[in-house]
């Protein structure tokens, strides 16, 4: 009886979710079908969802890459960069956030205000100055301008996010640990990190995707085509004056989404285990 009632109560929820899922997924299905459309089929001045014939060659054409460099190379480059950037971002942001959220020190409020200000700077308008700095460091044509800042928590978004989460961890837990003789670093590793796992996972997912999707930094700092990333390569399909290979571009856009989706699927299940299942057990 009870189970039945619960199930009935869930029906409206399921209906809402299914409807929403359809709206969310529709454009993606359109894209998937688009990747199978031939050049003549792609646009016809009408909104056709399903291609007249499935044109698999888009995938072969796209996978062949550019200038003798196969598309797989671009995926590899993106993967290496994104993994490094993600590791750097999550580790350094958690470390810094702990400082802002848990430790009283002189100047904390000022520095935090400055952190918030940097959050409001459009990056597009700092890129010239940054380029000049990295140029003088002789870092152009290496991955350093992309990776080193990640290890320096340069995206204030992540620091702010983790500060907000760390502040929700009950203080009594720290105090108990201090009484047990833990140092501040010990509390960070033994209490804060495990208890903010959902937030850390969320950061991992975002950091990986943002780095994967980043266009402007690879454009500026990686000059050798052999080092180009997926986001750069995808733009090469598109030339407004001489015509674009939309089918191949859509095909590769979807292929290059796979790693991001895999990362999401791998990590998202850990979001579930928050403080409720872990924290109060130990």
């Amino acid at each position: 009886m009870k189970a039945n009632r619960k199930w009935l109560k869930n029906i409206p929820v399921q209906i809402v979710l299914i409807l929403l899922a359809l709206i969310m997924i529709y454009p993606l299905i359109w894209m998937l079908f688009g990747s199978f459309k031939s050049k003549a089929d792609f646009f016809q001045g009408s909104f056709n969802l399903i291609p007249s014939t499935f044109y698999w060659k888009n995938y072969a054409d796209g996978w062949a890459g550019f200038g003798g460099i196969p598309f797989g190379q671009f995926i590899k480059n993106s993967a290496v960069l994104s993994i490094l950037v993600t590791i750097g971002t999550v580790l350094s942001s958690a470390w810094v956030a702990n400082g802002f959220a848990r430790i009283e020190f002189k100047g904390r409020k000022i520095w935090f205000a400055i952190l918030m200000v940097t959050l409001m700077l459009p990056v597009q308008l700092l890129m010239v100055q940054r380029y000049i700095i990295f140029f003088h460091l002789k870092w152009i044509n290496t991955i350093l301008p992309i990776v080193v800042p990640a290890f320096l928590a340069y995206q204030p978004f992540f620091v702010f996010l983790l500060v907000q989460f760390i502040k929700t961890v009950p203080r009594e837990l720290d105090e108990a640990a201090y009484i047990d003789g833990c140092s501040k670093i010990g509390v960070f590793i033994k209490i804060i990190l495990p208890l903010t796992r959902p937030a850390l996972i969320t950061c991992t997912i975002f950091a990986f995707y943002w780095s994967w999707d980043d266009f402007i930094n690879p454009l500026l700092y990686l000059n050798k085509p052999l080092n180009y990333t997926v986001s750069l390569a995808l733009r090469l399909f598109n030339d407004p004056a001489a015509g674009s290979n939309w089918g191949a571009m859509f095909a590769m856009a979807l292929v290059s989404l796979l790693p991001v989706i895999i990362v999401f699927l791998m990590f998202q299940k850990y979001i579930v285990e928050g403080i409720s299942t872990q924290g109060l057990k130990g």
Partner: peptide
């Protein structure tokens, strides 16, 4: 020869930034 190619979108942005740095 080191080729540096990009799509039309982004080409001139990159060039002007390289020019600003003298590179």
């Amino acid at each position: 020869i080191e080729p540096e190619f990009s799509g039309w979108g982004g080409y001139w942005d990159k060039l002007s930034i390289q020019a600003a740095a003298g590179n």
